[in-house]
Design a protein around this nucleic acid. Sequence first.
DNA 1: ATAACATATGAACAGTTGAGCAAGTATCGA
DNA 2: TCGATACTTGCTCAACTGTTCATATGTTAT
Lengths: 122, 122
Amino acid sequence: MVLEIGHEADRCDCNVIHEDVVERVRLTMPREEDLYDLAEFFKVFGDSTRIKIISALFKNEMCVCDIAYLLNMTQSAISHQLRVLRQARLVKNRKEGKIVFYSLNDEHVKQIFDQGLNHINE
Amino acid sequence: MVLEIGHEADRCDCNVIHEDVVERVRLTMPREEDLYDLAEFFKVFGDSTRIKIISALFKNEMCVCDIAYLLNMTQSAISHQLRVLRQARLVKNRKEGKIVFYSLNDEHVKQIFDQGLNHINE
DNA sequence: ATAACATATGAACAGTTGAGCAAGTATCGA
DNA sequence: TCGATACTTGCTCAACTGTTCATATGTTAT
């Protein structure tokens, strides 16, 4: 098999390659960077503490302390996770004196959450 | 504040708790176990290698070697990740002699994938 | 049988991540 | 101004995860 210059087959250690299929697929795939961002996005959903927080905020905005109480975890742990959710733009907050209320910040979240539930319940 | 017997406020180290809100939220939340499974499910999407594999399989079924070639990774690495995807019931495979072809196994996957893309592109 | 090859798997290792602790910031009330 | 309180953040460590290497399994051709 003739490899083109610069062809990225350095690590692939097998021979049966359906070149036509691979190249066709390559054309349809999103940019590498977008796929990376997408994985980062789903990573945020991939932790049970964060999923619980998201699930809780569907019903009501809540302050950090309420969430810590609800989930029986330290305020620090919740605050750390809220930061992750904030950075992913999944939650927003408003301040009322000392108290910070968090709520969801995205319309897609509920749909993604529910479709995930569909999958695990089928 | 009076704590009920067996109340799970052991680790919460603050005082301002909106009990009514918290208890109302608690009633609407899915079972702990389902939330755990949901996090496990999203964890599978939270790795760029697996996202690339999923993204590739939208277009065509492919053998392990094709995927390794496409992503310029070792066959072993791909095989390991395909196992994760298989265990999450996201892909299925069919065997043709020595070659194993993988394809997607779920209708929700495309929707979840696309809604994730919506989020990062907004 | 034996060789060749596509894929799977186990162990090891590096890198990442979540939680707790302790210290810090910001706001309120006295 | 001072203490109390709601929250945030830096650090550390144990636990987890993805990749590689070496090896095993299963299929085909000779």
